[in-house]
């Protein structure tokens, strides 16, 4: 029984660091998407990768590294708040852009590799 516990204790920090690393890589992927997508509304989708899966995986990794329950509670509070505020902020952004009259790009974009910084008219 104690051997099993020892193995779990030995694996836990490595797994936690690995999850943090995967979260960081997902954050980079989301950022690359934000840089490459053609207009504001599609960039919003790429940014939501960071808000959801990257945050979840990084915080899960930190939970596995956490030395005490207090830290776990703080991480849970951060996670809950990110999950409540993320979509609210995204919706506020999308709604503000829509109200201001920013038109989304509609239709298939395959192969059309124009400059990603172009403003949609």
């Amino acid at each position: 029984m104690t051997e099993v516990l020892d193995i779990i204790m030995a694996v836990k920090p490595v797994l936690g660091a690995l999850l943090c690393l995967v979260g960081g890589i997902l954050a980079i992927i989301g950022t690359v998407g934000v840089l490459r997508f053609p207009d504001f509304y599609t960039r919003l989708h790429a940014a939501s990768i960071t808000d959801t899966s990257a945050a979840t995986l990084t915080i899960l990794g930190m939970v596995l590294l956490a030395p005490s329950w207090l830290i776990v509670f703080k991480l849970a509070a951060i996670w809950l708040f990110l999950f409540l505020s993320g979509p609210t902020g995204s919706h506020a952004l999308a709604n503000a852009a829509h109200t201001a009259g920013l038109q989304p790009v509609i239709g298939r974009l395959r192969g059309r590799v124009d400059s990603s910084g172009e403003e949609p008219s």
Partner: peptide, 11 residues
Amino acid sequence: CVSANRDINPA
């Protein structure tokens, strides 16, 4: 996000 040709279809 990572594919070479941006194969998206926004609507």
